[in-house]
């Protein structure tokens, strides 16, 4: 399955949830947000939200800025 993850084409083996994807790519931090196709997916739904072919997924964090 092909998705766009942070603007990079990424191949995933199976259909999987956001939580599993986050685990696979080692996202361990507390403060982050996930968007799928420009819709925010709240953390409470990460365990149940299934990623689909062609989804545009953004994983976003806070960095230094003025």
């Amino acid at each position: 399955m092909k998705i766009l993850l942070n603007n990079e084409t990424t191949l995933l083996n199976d259909e999987l949830t956001i939580s599993i994807l986050l685990d696979q790519i080692n996202i361990r931090q507390k403060y982050f947000a996930v968007e799928v196709n420009e819709q925010i997916i709240p953390k409470s739904k990460h365990k149940s939200f299934l990623i689909k072919e062609g989804d545009r997924i953004e994983i976003i964090t806070a960095i230094g800025g003025g």
Binding site: I27, R28, I59, I60, A62, G65
Partner: peptide, 18 residues
């Protein structure tokens, strides 16, 4: 702080701003 795409490839033990 600024809001940006996370650096996916970073070491899981590296620190983040927050």
């Amino acid at each position: 702080v600024a809001i940006r795409r996370m650096n996916i490839g970073q070491d899981k033990n590296s620190q983040n701003l927050l």
